[in-house]
Design a protein around this nucleic acid. Structure first.
Lengths: 336, 336
DNA sequence: CTGAAAGCGCTAACAC
DNA sequence: GTGTTAGCGCTTTCAG
């Protein structure tokens, strides 16, 4: 491997000058610069990034912690992060926590060891207190969950409002017995959507029925299983708001198998607008999240912290959008 | 930041001893070791990985290059890679080439700069010649594409055999006009599946019909569009083998919209066994690839290269499996 | 505008 | 079994 001293020797300059040509070209006389550049070319010299990092304690790398990589939603956010990272010369290190708090924790050591310049968390499993502690010292962004009153920089949608909007849409279509399939309730995201659901009911004077709310795990299977439970009850719901599309589709599939007509016997609204939500029949009405943009905004927020720029809005809330398709019954054209 | 010399001073030993306690504990007297360990604990010392890397020129990091991260298939492979990497203390750096050869190329510089110990490519866009050159010098694995006669270590399924098997399954169900939707034909993977398709036809004396083969881009939309074309032709196919599930589902959806009954009027076989293939109705008959295991095997192969172990089989071919569901019509129980 | 020299934090001969 | 010492390849004062 060819190093800086090789270039320096061949160009009859010191390593300091070579370094300057690379980092700060205008502090070097044009003639010398050209000479050095030529030698760099000739020798096909590639600066050793590791050595530079050790010296400058900047890794030009950021770390993204995801709970599960095999989830299209995270992949989309990751796409946005990766795009901006590339533009700004940062590499993206991926870490899979698999939902383990300890694993998540251990990744943060990278930050302390200056191996990465910042971390984007696509999971809030570490909890507010711990995260806030880290946020004081290191660049960090929490994506997809918003923590009210916290100092942690976040990028997310307004889950409460979105949940409310989805539920109200069903209310406006005349439904009173609206079920809600939540995600894991230890997550703020699921808590928010549930809060929105309750708020919508309350606003419209519909009593809250404990039995119409079940906690799922965001999987297709849990949607399916929990829906089956409701379908066997004496007084099944006429509408369902699921906290994500996978569960919504699982529920729809279970209902269809029992001969239930969607949307006429059961109206369904999902969340996320995954690609498949517009492929499955009936096409799913759902709340779209701007995943790619969430990634981009997260990376922007992180870069600002890394560069010690001032951050006016540490909590970015992006817009979600209710996309009306067939499964809710609002779209007359598509009604069967 | 607290460093090794701080620990050494406080423990009344040299940095060399601290280093030994960390790297090679048994070369240190138990008493000293305990003392050092205690101080490490007290000071909450974290070794600086960067400095170690610079010294040992081992980054304990591998790079995975994917053409698009927003693809469940790659995410699954990545999951397998990540799992094994974690077990062996390696970090996973992610790189998105977006199908650009130059971008892919630039990532390989990391390898030359010793920033990563090895690279797993989930795309063959760089071509055999270039890859073979790199493979001579650096640890590298090409996943999901097999290059016959090359020295490049690869992990894949046998695409020719799988394509043949899928096609033969349709032939055995009595079909003669079998269409094939290929992936981008510059890829070996798509070429392989097409070759398998042709081989199956030939074996069973079915003439190859140019018009029954169309090149798609693996997207749902392309499956849909190309199927519409066939449906408008005077003599549409009675069966379809699509090179991936997205296109198969796109084709099915287009057919269903035209009132075609699947599998009775059109039998369909896909490829990959994505989760959605068993959710969409009719459930898709498809060739399952062991994606997670492909990731695991790729990482194993890479680790062997990194550790300079001998590799008996540089080209690992894993088994694929034809999963028979509803869309091909073989499953009488599910026939409508 | 350029060079000498110190040192980022760690590891690995080499001594003892 | 432990310490001394010399770097890994680069950046950055400090002098000139």
């Amino acid at each position: 491997m060819i190093k800086m001293s090789d270039v320096a020797r061949k160009a009859n300059v010191s390593t300091a000058t070579v370094s300057r040509v690379l980092r700060n070209p205008h502090s070097v006389k044009e003639e010398t610069r050209k000479k050095v550049l030529r030698v760099i070319e000739e020798l096909n010299y590639q600066p050793n990034a590791l050595a530079r990092q050790l010296r400058t304690s900047r890794a030009h790398t950021i770390l993204v912690v995801v709970p599960t990589i095999t989830n299209t939603v995270f992949a989309q956010v990751l796409g946005g992060i990766d795009q901006l990272a590339g533009e700004y010369g940062y590499r993206v290190l991926l870490a899979n926590s698999n939902g383990h708090k300890e694993k998540s924790m251990s990744y943060l050591d990278h930050l302390k060891q200056k191996q990465v310049d910042g971390v984007i968390l696509l999971t809030s499993e570490l909890g507010e207190a711990l995260l806030a502690d880290i946020a004081k010292e290191y660049p960090i962004v929490l994506t997809s969950e918003f923590i009210p009153g916290s100092i942690i920089p976040t990028v997310s949608i307004d889950n409460v409002r979105s949940g409310q909007q989805a539920t109200e849409h069903l209310i406006q279509l005349g439904h009173q017995r609206i079920a809600h399939l939540t995600g894991p309730l230890e997550g703020l995201l699921s808590q928010g959507r549930l809060a929105g659901y309750k708020e919508a009911l309350e606003r419209h004077g519909i009593p809250y029925d404990q039995g119409l709310v079940q906690e799922g795990d965001f999987s297709f299977e849990s949607g399916s299983e929990l829906m089956k439970g409701w379908l066997e009850s004496p007084d099944p719901p006429t509408a369902l708001f699921a906290a994500n599309d996978e569960m919504a589709i699982g529920a729809m599939k279970a209902a269809i198998e029992k001969g239930i007509d969607i949307p006429n016997n059961l109206a369904v609204v999902g969340f996320d607008n995954i690609q498949f939500s517009s492929i499955f029949e009936p096409m799913l009405t759902t709340v779209a999240q701007p995943f790619h943009d969430m990634g981009v905004q997260s990376m922007k927020l992180l870069l600002k912290q890394i560069n010690q720029e001032e951050i006016e809005h540490p909590q970015i809330v992006l817009d979600s959008e209710l996309i009306i398709r067939q499964s809710c019954g609002a779209n007359k054209v598509n009604e069967k």
